[in-house]
Structure formats: structure tokens, C-alpha cells
Amino acid sequence: MALVSCVCDHFSFVIFFSRRNGIQSLNVLDYIINALTQQFNCMVMLPSIFLILVADLILSDLNNGYAGLILTRARSRLSWLLAKICVLFVCAFLFTMICTVIYLISGLLSGLPLDFTWSSHSLFTEETSPSFVLIMIECLYIFGLTAYGTFLLMVSLILRNTVFTWGTGAFMNILSYVAWLKMREIEKWFPTSQMMFLSQYPNKLIVNTPGFTTHWSLTYHFLLFTFSVLLGLLLFRRINLTRSI
């Protein structure tokens, strides 16, 4: 379902997203960067789709009894939890890569040339290597989705319901977007805003929020991740691992 949503998102919205505010992509690289920094796509759509993939990462095992088969063989609950977080990281990595590949394909299908140089119409004002910009965006996505996903996994342990967990995530995504639209000064405190590279790097579209830098985002991700793992350990250590609460 997540994959279908992902493909639908890309093919139905990407062209619209990537031609915002008069900025038009001249090559595939521009197109990918445009799509991955489009505010609604970045803060609401992609994180929400990712959450469909991972919201039940722990709960499905608990609810269908598979956790019992694993845990009778595991040394500790912590090892299982850490294994799940590793899976989450792999999911975040694959999700980001798949998104990029889908954008690449849809860019090519739109007739854009497969050129990896900076176009003169690019979003960013500073002369930086385009590959570096793309890598930074990808890193923000991978670390952001991992940290945010870990946090929501722990929320799922409290709520014990996949739909409510996803709903919580979607609500936070929308809050991030609203903050970006209406309260730019507090934007840097919201989890999915951290993936919004455009807010952190000098560009032609928007004025950067003071103090909101890529370094800030990476620190934010690290702290959110550490907090989530510690919270998860505290919860998971003593929780009843049964189907019902």
C-alpha cells in the first residue's frame, strides 16, 4: 500500500511540485532536488507514506504472535528492540533511495536531460557541488526518517494501535507544515521540518530561519533518536508483550 501511495504521489504531484514559483527544472538533477525540497512533499507527503511502511513494525509482531517466536530465542528485549531500529534505518535508506530513483525515472519521462551539472536556474544561490547538495538532502531524509520513525515506534508502544500511531505522525507532519507556512520562527523545532533543506540553505525561494542549519537538523535528529531509544528501552523493558494490553 505504501509503495502504491509512493508511486502515486510521485507521478501525480511531482510535476506540479517541481514547477513551483517559476523555478523550472532544466535537468534531472534539478528535478530531483526540486522534488525533495518541495515543502508539502518533504514535510507531509513523504514522511506520511514512510510512516505507513513502519508504523506497525513492532505492533504487527506483537499482535500476530511472531514476537513470541523471536523473543524465546533472543537474549534480551533490548536486542530485539535494537534489531527493529536497525530495520527502521534500512527502511529509511531504501525509502529515500527508491524516492530518488522514482523521481529520476519521472524526470526522464518528462523529457528532461540526464545531466548532473548545476543549471543556471537552480534553487540555490551558493556555488556548491550539486552532488554534495543531493547527498546532504539524502542524509537529512535518511537520518530524519530514522529518528522520527524511532520516536513513533515508541509512541506505538504506548498507544498499542497502528492507526493511532500513524495518525499521531500525520498530525505532527501537518503541524510542521503549518509552522513552515505561518510561524517560520518556530519551524526548526518540528521533526519533519528538519528534512526541509530549503529552510537551511541559502536559496532563491525563501529566507532562511535564523539558526536553522543543516548542523542544527543533524543534532536535532541525534537527540530525538537518543531520546527515543532511551524511552523505548524504559518502556520495552517492562511492558507486557502480549496481544492485548
Binding site: 513470541g68 524465546t72 534480551s76
Partner: peptide, 21 residues
């Protein structure tokens, strides 16, 4: 509980209906 939620070793279990992939 221990520090990391220790689990007993050498236990084979079939609890409720078995769930496989």
C-alpha cells in the same frame, strides 16, 4: 527485568496459534 529486559535461555514454546512469515 534487569537493565535490558533479560530473557530466559533454552525455552521452546508454542504459545497460541503459531505465527510465521
Amino acid at each position: 527485568l534487569g537493565l535490558i529486559g533479560e530473557l530466559p535461555a533454552s525455552v521452546g514454546a508454542l504459545i497460541e496459534s503459531p505465527a510465521f512469515l
